[in-house]
């Protein structure tokens, strides 16, 4: 299966800007399906970004984050070609991870 994480990290020499898009239902537990039954909560709880092994950004999410979440942030201290590792875990124990090169 293709990775659930799409990421773009670009640096202008000093600051690296990271944009990530993750495919996830982010079910809140308040929505009903076509049969009128509640869809149980299923959402990403933790999302981590690490650059060269050092954590640069950690997100703790609740179910109020939109479906297929998008996140943007920037950090200092990385250069072109460095590895950026993104990993997430959800409330059902699911997880995914990917590594991107900073462009």
């Amino acid at each position: 299966m293709a990775s659930s994480i799409r990421v773009r990290a670009t640096t202008n020499g000093d600051i690296t800007e990271v944009q990530a898009l993750i495919q996830h239902p982010m079910d809140s537990g308040f929505v009903k399906d076509a049969k009128g039954e509640l869809i149980p909560p299923h959402f990403i709880q933790e999302l981590k970004f690490a650059c060269n092994g050092k954590e640069v950004f950690v997100a703790d999410w609740g179910p109020a984050v939109s479906k297929d979440p998008y996140i943007k942030f920037s950090f200092k201290g990385a250069k072109k070609g460095d590895d950026l590792t993104i990993s997430w875990t959800d409330n059902k124990g699911g997880s995914d991870q990917t590594t991107a090169k900073i462009a």
Binding site: V56, F57, V58, A59, A64, V65, F73, S74, F75
Partner: peptide
């Protein structure tokens, strides 16, 4: 919202205090 806290981000040293995301309301 049913639960007020939507998202919490940790900003380590060297990361800019700028975050963009999308939330449900």
């Amino acid at each position: 919202n049913p639960n007020a806290l939507a998202a919490s981000y940790k900003i380590p040293d060297g990361t800019m205090p700028v975050v963009a995301n999308r939330l449900k309301m």
